[in-house]
Amino acid sequence: MATESLILEVQNLKKYFPMARGFFRKTVGYVKAVDGASFFIREGETLGLVGESGCGKTTLGRCILRLIEPTEGEVWFQRSNGEKIELTKLHPEALKNLRREIRMIFQDPYASLDPRLTVMEIVGEPMKIHGMAKGRELEDRVKRLLEVVGLKAQHMRRYPYEFSGGQRQRIGIARALASDPRLIIADEPVSALDVSVQAQVLNLLEELQEELHLTYLFISHDLSVVQHVSDRVAVMYLGKIVELGNATTVYYAAPKHPYTEALLSAIPQADPQRKLKRILLKGDVPSPIQSPPGCKFHPRCRYADTLCSQEEPTLKDVGDHHYVACHYAEQLHLEGVELYD
């Protein structure tokens, strides 16, 4: 692990939201949105983070950036000069500096752009905040950025409502690129878009990665999209990473966690001739307020036994940097998606 250049390393990150009741706002419990998540991202790769709604993937993304203050855990970020910095305890001034290097793309292209600013102001804002450019130079750079993301430079005086969803997402991407970041956390960047527009944005993200040597943390609930963009995949369930490994290995060759297996089999296949053996999970995702003891997945797992309901498995390496949090990871033979030519 040490030999590779890890741009981001998250260790045992936790975020508990207190639940307050009554007049005196007494804390009656915690929503364990992120409950001890650990993973790492290599420089230049795309790590896909998949999970169902409510599994804490968005909270995790925001905790890394400290848009939400994490309760516990460490986030190590490697700067371009090789220096490693721990983000969770960083002073606000130093953090502001780092925000040039880690940027975010948001899910909802309608809510994430200030409706009262022009495109020029939106895209130029990070440069203004970090004092990177002003006046004519700022304008030129905004123009260049707009062209990079496939918009016309003369659109810069317009307001966000004049653009379609796909174009707005492009503006959001231009804004993220404005401060020359190295790591981009993309939180469901295409889920609000139509299929045909989604493809345009995915392609754009890929081109940008090649050109600008970006690293992505790609958060999504759409398994096919994640498979398409990711080098490696992290599967999240109830605030924890349950499986982390090479995208091909996890999807096709050998998923090692029963949840991953079920998740994969549930994807609707765009081919009516291939009916998959479907593993239908019982019930719904439990609430993160009262998560089950032991392995969090055991009430829905078809392989579970008593050990699973008592002891919580840890994330361990089953070889070739494939990490799984399951007691029986090495015994089970699970099926991924079958490959056809």
């Binding site: 925001r62 950036l65 848009l67 953090l95 502001k96 500096n97 925000r99 040039r100 940027r103 975010m104 948001f106 899910q107 909802d108 809510a111 994430s112 752009l113 200030d114 409706p115 009262r116 600013l117 804002e125 990070p126 905040i129 970090h130 959001g172 804004r175 401060s179």
Partner: peptide
């Protein structure tokens, strides 16, 4: 709670920037 406010903080904008440039005009 809107994302565009999160976006300003994410890019390192200060509280006063968030309030005077984004919240109040809206």
């Amino acid at each position: 709670e809107q994302d565009f406010i999160a976006a300003i903080k994410e890019m390192g904008g200060s509280d006063s920037r968030v309030i005077f440039r984004h919240l109040l005009p809206n």
